[in-house]
Design a protein around this nucleic acid. Sequence first.
DNA 1: ATGGTAGTTCAACTA
Length: 258
Amino acid sequence: MFKIATWNVNSLRVRLAHVLAWLTAEQPDVLAIQETKLTDDAFPIQEFAGIGYLAAFTGQKTYNGVAILSKYPGQVIATALPAYPDPQKRLLCVEFNGVCVLNLYVPNGSEVGSEKYRYKLEWLSHLKGYTDDLLRNYPKCVVLGDFNIAPTDADVHDPQEWTGKVLCSGPEREAFFKLVHSGLVDCYRLFPQQEPAYSWWDYRAAGFRRNRGLRIDHILAATELAQHCKSCRIDIAPRKLERPSDHAPVVAEFEVWT
DNA sequence: ATGGTAGTTCAACTA
């Protein structure tokens, strides 16, 4: 079994103990994390090595920053969108023995119509070009991370309240499905899910306690790889801890084949 | 229609 997960940790400095505990308990082969908010010189390599994980990372001060933790070494393929120079560290692609893992922290977009919203759509359009290339070179591709997009109303606690708002707007959803429909599958929707399950809840207004959430963190697998996906779930346990991230991990398991 | 909280950094930005 190949077990892979994504988790926006919202500061690795603050969340390190949570991440170490979760890795130790869950033992995924690969964990993609977002919003490390750490420069590369400050990345806690030793702490992860201590529990048997290697780390690839690209970070910056204060904002953004992505990393891929893994039980075995991989090859870094990219730390940015090749055709889109961007000082914001939001992308890391690592190959593990033919399986390509693309970790994304998609721009939040702030507000529909804002400069940050335009940046988000532009970023997503360049991402589409990149994943098209990647899927040609690596048929076994997993694209995962914080997409900052709730794909459908089923992924939103109150679709009426969120209609047309950032994270749920038409252009964002179109960009998401454009990406997915060119050779990827949303692993979470491969399986019947018990109840509306979200991956992010606003810290404000007791969002988690009232289960006012959105499913904006995703694991997408290349079509053929998706046929070997055995499970996909959201683990809300870490969201219940003291000083949690506002996101919960999403976990998928694939049967290994040759 | 605004605000609520959290992280980084220390006033203001991002989410």
